[in-house]
Design a protein around this nucleic acid. Sequence first.
DNA 1: TTGTACGCGTTATCAT
DNA 2: ATGATAACGCGTACAA
Lengths: 377, 377
Amino acid sequence: MQSRLPTLSDVARCAGVSYATVDRVVNDRGGVAEKSVIRVRKAIDELGYVRNVAAANLSQNKTYRFAAIIPTGTNQFFQQLRAILEAERIRLLADRIDLRIEGIAAFDGEALCERLDILSQTGIDGVALVGTDDDIVAQKIAELRSAGIAVLTLVSDAPNAPRDAYIGIDNRVAGQTAGRLIGLCHGGACGRVLPIVGALSAPDHAERLEGMRETVTSLYPDLDIAPVIIGRDEHEIVENKLRPIFKNSHDITAVYSVGGGNAGLLRVLRSLPDGQNRPIVVLHDIVPQAREALEDGVIDAIIDQRPEVEIANALSCLRSIADRRIPDVTDPILPTVYFKENLPPHGRDSFVRPGHAVNRTASGHASKSRILKEIDQ
Amino acid sequence: MQSRLPTLSDVARCAGVSYATVDRVVNDRGGVAEKSVIRVRKAIDELGYVRNVAAANLSQNKTYRFAAIIPTGTNQFFQQLRAILEAERIRLLADRIDLRIEGIAAFDGEALCERLDILSQTGIDGVALVGTDDDIVAQKIAELRSAGIAVLTLVSDAPNAPRDAYIGIDNRVAGQTAGRLIGLCHGGACGRVLPIVGALSAPDHAERLEGMRETVTSLYPDLDIAPVIIGRDEHEIVENKLRPIFKNSHDITAVYSVGGGNAGLLRVLRSLPDGQNRPIVVLHDIVPQAREALEDGVIDAIIDQRPEVEIANALSCLRSIADRRIPDVTDPILPTVYFKENLPPHGRDSFVRPGHAVNRTASGHASKSRILKEIDQ
DNA sequence: TTGTACGCGTTATCAT
DNA sequence: ATGATAACGCGTACAA
């Protein structure tokens, strides 16, 4: 029935000390007599004091300055990632988080380093980037962290770099899952799996490939793995490398595409002659074309990394680090398998039905108009 | 470079009106001259004003009072759900959310209604409950909402009840996915699928069963569906009903268990004579025994509903409704397929590596000791 | 070592 | 129709 939770003042009164003393105890600032500490701790326990985060944030009145560096180019997944970030901007501003979204050429460690240099000079609290297996990147990350800037790797880790955290799926596990799926779909028959990657310098691509290889070779010895196609996540390159393979040899029974450029793969699949059985196809990330292909039955499964969850976790983590708090323990992001049946709905429908508590009162309308306005911008 | 975002005072100054007038415009309180409204709107646009939610929350100094009603009993999934909620309590208190966790017999609409009556008298802002297909429950939900209490159904919806929202997976889709998996694993061979449910009055169970039936009958006509076992989510009941079936007939090639009581199923599976091939097994929800079974190869796949995500969404949604805001559009929760390979790690490991920004400063230690203390309780 | 007082941006109330 | 101002709880600068 208590409608008001205890405050630091309540604790001070209960402990018979001043507000400032309680603050010193609570925030470990030191310089407090031992017996005062004990009395304060006791009062906190008795009253069940819990720090009010809204008040704490307000009193500091700090605007966090974060940046996200996302590869540009035709890769639809990164376009989607960028769109999710853009859509979050206003919401984040309401929590006093100022997010810059930067573009950068994919698979280019030098360009990434340059951008990081510029960013660190403009003064930011943290940055999220897509990791590369590249010594100069690891070096630059170390520099940033020495300068007190939080660094997160997103989607793909940066091996040997002292980043604060990696936010993304375990890509080896994703590859193993793909291997399991492909194996299952062969139903004991022989076959040959064709892997497609963007670049082997991208740790996520390399790890997915390795995971698939592990599972297939150990659990499905009747399956063979063809030489890897390297497509730089560009659909033209993928298409051009793939066409001759499907034209000249008919032994490919499965395709595992770990990265982007799948528009090229799909064009090839859709143009296969009727007589030629289409291979089992597993690819990554629900982007529009992949979704269509799954709905049309041109491919069999998509492994997704839930970019919305990744971004939410990354922002929460950046904030915790900037606050010098222990990061919230978020659940690890798991590679998620989608078939035609459990493909998520297009428009991010939620299951919320309109009702009396929403959209009715004056303040309800106020919120609505504000929100609509924000979305327009 | 701006380290301070514009405030309502800034807007007032820019618009040449008082603080209170700006507040009236921003919060649609009315009673403002049209020309003032226009000037304020213009100033807001020019300055890029965004409401500071920390300040807003602080000024209201409201503690939300929510309740969650979770079935008791041996069902491990609900035990897990309860544990997740318990673990969130202190965190929630820091955001001034007071969460009560209540227990109730499973599949018992009357008991649920009684509990809801008691709760509504103690004064709460919102409640989350596991829905039942039951007229008196629908009736009671309507009463609560008329009294201004937000009502969410969690895990299982309540058909025809005017709840504010349903937070959970689409259970028909989950069933369809199970059907697809079972079909794939048969590799074109004939077979007979044995479904196990807790109760058909539970909408989630009924829908999963129906979804599986749809996919199997339409896509895999060589598969037959055996009469449904009703086990009330109790492992002894499940075991007792299952033993004779596996003893007397050897034609079951797959089992789909939509609910709880799987300890009984697993005992039966583990004690099958060596000569008898174990069936393909798909079940729901990663609870310890199911995890072990998947690791041991006793079952083939688990369909999970990510209870942590469900709870996070439910709380966020309750808060929005209590605030009379438009609920955040959260991504729909999707049934997630796990094989042995992509089973999430046990201890909720995150990918965070310790580093300089965390656990070092004085305030870092303060946070740490507080958090550890909270966990002990 | 301990205590006081002000600022943060919003909401709500009271006065004009 | 408009304006002034007191909370709200925490962090912190400064005084004792």
